[in-house]
Design a protein around this nucleic acid. Structure first.
Length: 466
RNA sequence: GGAACCAUCGCCAAGUUGGUAAGGCCGCAGCCUGCAAAGCUGCUAUUCGCCGGUUCGAGUCCGGCUGGUUCCUCCA
């Protein structure tokens, strides 16, 4: 396995800190709103990473957190009158449900800030005790970036750019402009606060992740975890700050490898609420099947920016369709063993920093070759069984192609419509037998009008939702 | 203003030690079909934003330019 490390900006051979095991921590969502396509992409990218490492034989422990204490959540509390717990529980459920539709496997550990306050306070206290953090008059606790000589090494930001920092509003009690809050003291009566030795208040965003990583992973004395992941926008300041906190509190580095996924753009622009082009995953799922969205969103390398548009999505769907059409030709039947060369080619591609493009091309070629052989000999049982096994392997490694093909092609068609379609097809078959092609074609046109495509095969007429 | 990344066929997109351009969508021709659809076969970039340089040889390395995106502030 080779991984592109965002810190060194090179592909590095993956060597786990513990033989045969991989610890991964990915920054999850702040649960104050529905997940958008960007969350989906990040989730999908690291799902692919975990699946690939598992297929390679590693014992993977994936942690993905939920930030459930945050200013934006508090704003939502104020705006809706609901409790923080109600809001975060709702969006966590929504998130997990929508990611499940995309075929994202659940993380092994899903830490929440509210459940990690002890670890957070302990880490802040340790930073204060060691002199890396200081408390200001109102009770806020700040991390002193000037005390960490290696601050900036993760994101390669230069230290002294005072003039450029003027645009960042900052507390005048901060010793350095780049210092950031570890703990925000209570501001008023109705503020949401948690008790802590330094002041009643709540944790800053960055400390949550550092503390949760220390809580759940042992590391090896040199690093806490193998891989830390997240969106490209988290590299600075979030990950820089996390790394600094962990380094100063524990004396060792946070992660051996850092991985960052690219953005989802809509029409070439970053998706954001201010631009009015944000795209909620739940809305996309109303229109497109989760499996197709998964295939589409994963079809571009995770580090590249992803330009979401319907035309490309359609091309992705057609590609997936071909796989399922092949599957139709294989059933009913049982899978035998995966073709070794195919398996190796797929794993080799994914082992190269998750080269999904090559992996998909390997699959396309396998599909075409299988179709060709089936055209020559439709009863090639050994081939059918092996191909079925190949498809099962694709499902395990990449998370698509696992459905029953007829249900895949008939998503969204209810029973009454199904009966109607079957009846029309039966009528057309009769007309064809009677050589009444005009009538047969009329029925086919009618089906086309209904959005149904039909194909005559040696086994009879089959249909798909177009 | 500072920094980073990207620029390959109409569209999407691979291309890590420089060695002579994967795959998909679309399109065209053929096979198959009553006709279609599906499937298969063949064709479809002497060329990789532009200009220089290094080299026997560069999409791949170096320099410059242009264009696009991102980060520097909450953000996947």
């Amino acid at each position: 396995m080779v991984i592109f490390d965002s810190v060194t900006k090179t592909k590095r051979p993956f060597e786990p800190i513990k033989e045969g095991e991989v610890s991964i921590y990915v920054c999850g969502p702040t649960v104050y709103d529905d997940a958008h396509l960007g969350h989906a992409r990040s989730s999908l990218a690291f799902d692919l990473l975990a699946r690939t490492l598992r297929a390679l034989g590693y014992k993977v422990t994936l942690a993905k957190n939920f930030t459930d204490i945050d200013d934006k959540i508090i704003k939502k509390v104020e705006a809706t009158g609901k409790s923080m717990q109600e809001i975060t529980a709702y969006y966590i459920d929504r998130y997990l449900e929508e990611m499940a539709q995309l075929g994202v496997q659940r993380a092994d550990i899903e830490p929440k800030a509210t459940e990690s306050l002890g670890a957070i306070e302990a880490m802040i206290q340790r930073l204060i005790d060691k002199g890396f953090a200081y408390v200001v008059s109102n009770g806020d606790v700040y991390f002193d970036t000037s005390k960490d000589p290696r601050y900036g090494e993760i994101s390669h930001k230069v230290h002294d750019e005072e003039e450029n920092l003027s645009r960042v509003a900052h507390n005048s009690e901060k010793r350095n402009p780049k210092d950031f809050a570890l703990w925000k003291a209570c501001k008023g009566e109705e503020d949401i606060c948690f008790d802590a030795p330094f002041a009643s208040g709540r944790p800053g965003w960055h400390i949550e992740c550092s503390a949760m990583i220390e809580k759940y992973f042992d590391g090896n004395g040199e690093y806490s975890i193998d891989i830390h992941g997240g969106g490209a926008d988290l590299l600075f300041p979030h990950h820089e700050n996390e790394a600094a906190q962990s380094r100063c509190a524990t004396g060792h580095e946070l992660a051996k490898y850092w991985m960052h996924n690219g953005f989802v753009q809509i029409d070439g622009e970053k998706m954001s609420k201010s631009l009015g082009n944000s795209f909620f995953l739940k809305d996309a799922l109303k229109v497109y099947d989760g499996e197709i969205l998964r295939y589409y969103l994963n079809s571009v390398h995770y580090r590249n920016d992803f330009n979401f548009n319907e035309e490309d999505l359609l091309a992705a769907k057609k590609r997936l369709d071909k796989l399922y059409r092949l599957k139709k030709r294989l059933l009913p039947g049982k899978a035998s063993a995966v073709n070794p060369a195919f398996k190796k080619a797929l794993l080799d591609a994914m082992s190269d920093d998750l080269n999904i493009s090559v992996a998909l091309s390997v699959i396309d070629e396998m599909v075409a070759a299988a179709n060709e052989k089936l055209d020559e000999n439709p009863k090639n049982k050994a081939l059918k069984k092996e191909t079925l096994a190949n498809l099962a392997f694709i499902d395990t490694l990449l998370g698509f192609g696992g459905k029953e093909p007829y249900s895949y092609f008939q998503i969204g068609v209810d029973e009454t419509l199904k009966e109607q379609i079957e009846a029309l097809i039966a009528k057309r078959t009769e007309a064809k037998k009677a050589k009444d092609f005009a009538a047969a074609d009329a029925i086919r046109d009618e089906l086309t009008q209904m959005g149904i495509a039909i194909m005559d095969t040696p086994e009879g007429t089959v249909w798909e939702r177009a």
